[in-house]
């Protein structure tokens, strides 16, 4: 299952087609079917404003899911992505609102704080040999607590930082093409996806990411400092969570310290729907992106259909199981 990632001679494109292309096709087809299905059933579904609402709803979960994908490919898991997002948004709140620093510094501080916390998780996992599930569970709680401590348990508003809400809510695309006012948050999601995809497919870091997930022992025995690469990947995932922190803070124009718990599970759900294996060594950013979109389309569509809320949750759970089952069934055949 991991052979394709270790065979060097294949081109990047060939690798892309090989690794989970079927799953992505399947996921993509499901996404289209969901979109068409909902449009047929509800005349209100397929409106530009609703499509933008769906994309906007995807942006934060999508970015978190990308962070989770990187860690999951290494064979780890990151339960702290949700509260790390919260903590970085609180960090930006402190830097911008409480210290009155200029906007770019706020963004940089959030991303840097994300990278630092990710590095800590990576240290716990790689150097202290704590299982990723436990290390990041601990980190999840630490960060939830710290968010409340640092913010003084009150939301921090960005009303004094003009332009902050435009990071996610504004629309550069809409200024050029007024008929498609796609919010910047969505644009940022796609940029993060492209960069992460490039890192995974084209850089040494990406190659070790897959290798660690496939056979860490072999990588270590071949003389690679696996600890260092693992920590780098957790730090990168943390930095991406920092971007998610900016996105959500900008969207709410406030840093909400109590938020974040439960978001890690939605991110992981998007990752597995997108065909990334929880046992590591295999996965794609594109798949994760589609997974996040499927979740957002499903939630929004069921809402627009006024399906009772209890059932929305049931359906989402069923979809996760079906998606993973379909992926495994296909894999057994090939």
């Amino acid at each position: 299952m991991t052979a394709e990632t270790q065979e060097k001679p294949k081109s990047y494109l060939a690798q892309l087609i090989d690794t989970g292309a079927h799953q992505r096709l399947l996921a993509f087809a499901s996404l289209i079917i969901l979109l068409v299905g909902f449009s047929i059933v509800s005349p209100n579904f397929m409106q530009t404003s609703n499509m933008i609402a769906i994309l906007q709803a995807t942006s934060v979960n999508g970015v978190l899911a990308i962070a989770a994908t990187l860690v999951i490919i290494t064979g780890g898991i990151d339960l702290s992505v949700g509260t790390l997002m919260t903590f970085t948004s609180v960090t930006a709140g402190v830097v911008l609102t409480k210290a009155g620093m200029p906007l770019p510094l706020g963004v940089i501080s959030a991303v840097a704080m994300g990278a630092f916390c990710g590095l800590c998780s990576g240290f716990f996992v790689a150097k202290m040999k704590i299982p990723p599930f436990i290390a990041t569970l601990g980190m999840m709680l630490i960060l939830k607590g710290l968010s409340l401590v640092v913010s003084g348990t009150r939301p921090i508003y960005f009303s004094d930082t003009p332009g902050f809400d435009q990071i996610s809510r504004g629309s550069l695309i809409g200024e050029i093409i007024p008929s498609v006012p796609i919010p910047n948050g969505v644009l940022i999601l796609f940029i993060v996806a492209i960069v992460a995809s490039y890192i995974l497919g084209r850089t040494v870091l990406g190659r070790y990411c897959f290798a660690l997930g496939s056979n860490e022992e072999a990588v270590r025995l071949s003389g690679v400092n696996t600890d260092r690469w693992k920590m780098a990947i957790y730090a990168l995932a943390g930095a991406i969570c920092g971007i998610a922190g900016i996105l959500i803070a900008s969207r709410l124009n406030s840093a909400q310290p109590a938020l974040g718990l439960g978001y890690e599970l939605e991110a992981i759900a998007a990752v597995v729907i997108g065909g990334t294996s929880l046992s590591g060594g295999r996965g794609t950013i594109l798949g994760t992106l589609i997974g996040a979109l499927i979740m957002a389309v499903l939630t929004n569509g069921l809402r627009v259909l006024s399906v009772a809320q209890e059932w929305q949750t049931v359906v989402t759970g069923a979809i996760i199981i079906l998606a993973v089952y379909a992926d495994m069934a296909r894999r057994r055949k090939t």
Binding site: N44, F45, Q47, S49, N50, A53, Q56, A57, T299, N300, R303, V304
Partner: peptide
């Protein structure tokens, strides 16, 4: 998100 879906 719920408010956005309701508006649609």
């Amino acid at each position: 998100d719920m408010l956005a879906a309701a508006l649609a």
